[in-house]
Design a protein around this nucleic acid. Structure first.
Lengths: 154, 154
DNA sequence: TCTGAAACGCACTGCCC
DNA sequence: GGGCAGTGCGTTTCAGA
């Protein structure tokens, strides 16, 4: 259980990261296999947790979330209780797509998607700044998405 | 063609963003519909581009890409040719999961996944720093993923 | 582990309302 | 728009190698 991945597993993961609608039959063809072993391997990769989930990727522009903002947050005090509270509250904010606790001077980096700059303003004013213990808050806007993928290099 | 989304469309998109393996039948059930209209709407949402693709999300730790780094890059010169070249070269780097052209002093923000700090070092030394015209390069490491989703709030 | 066959359910179509 | 009924295909299971 949970042994290392062989080359066949890696190929399957690479394919499914790009297109999870590929059928076991199609994947089998590129691997010179039948669909049964491919199917079983996918099932095993799901069960072992290598594949966490399958999702649809939407077009940010079309669904009107065009504005992406990177926001750097530093806390005023750095005790456990404050940090945990902050993490909890951030997770609940729907506008926040990513949040990382960082090494270095800045404590957290957030990526936020909104409809407009005005909506971002409201987000900061009514939601983010309501969180206790935020010291410095520094927002910079994305001019252009150069690259954006959910794929990992394996 | 390309009209506004109604509430049914939005519900379908919300569900598929969380779990694209949900069948039309299952989605239909939560909407008190049959599978035919749900199926047709999904097809339309794909064709209109609202749904860009379907992908498998892998576990970063299990596939050994545990180290996430945020790297801020500023260019030495800001002419069109240099910027385009930079964008092209970044897109080709497999370790780079995200790259944004920013407003403000920092020109680009990159998110990079590697197996180890050492591998990140090699990435900077042999790949990133080979790109022409990079002025300042500032790397900070992620201590913890607080939130990380491909979902948009719609 | 893989192959091949067989069962089942869903995707997908066409017709009706 | 949505419902209903049908067909083909992929998923899923299993015996055998």
């Amino acid at each position: 259980m949970m042994e290392q991945l062989d080359q066949t597993d890696i190929t399957i993961l690479r394919i499914l990261q790009k297109d999870s609608k590929k059928t076991a039959k199609e994947i089998a063809k590129t691997l010179n296999l039948t669909s049964s072993p491919v199917y079983e391997r996918i099932r095993r990769l799901e069960k072992q947790g290598f594949i966490k989930k399958y999702v649809a990727i939407l077009d940010k522009k079309l669904i009107d979330r065009s504005i992406t903002t990177i926001c750097q947050v530093s806390m005023r005090y750095h005790n456990e209780a404050f940090i945990e509270k902050f993490e909890e509250q951030i997770q609940a904010l729907e506008e926040v797509q990513e949040c990382y606790h960082m090494a270095g001077q800045v404590d957290f980096v957030l990526k936020i998607n909104t409809k407009s700059l005005e909506e971002y303003h409201d987000f900061v004013k009514y939601k983010l700044s309501k969180i206790e213990n935020i010291g410095v808050l520094n927002s910079t806007f994305v001019l252009k998405d150069i690259k954006h993928t959910s794929e990992f290099y394996i």
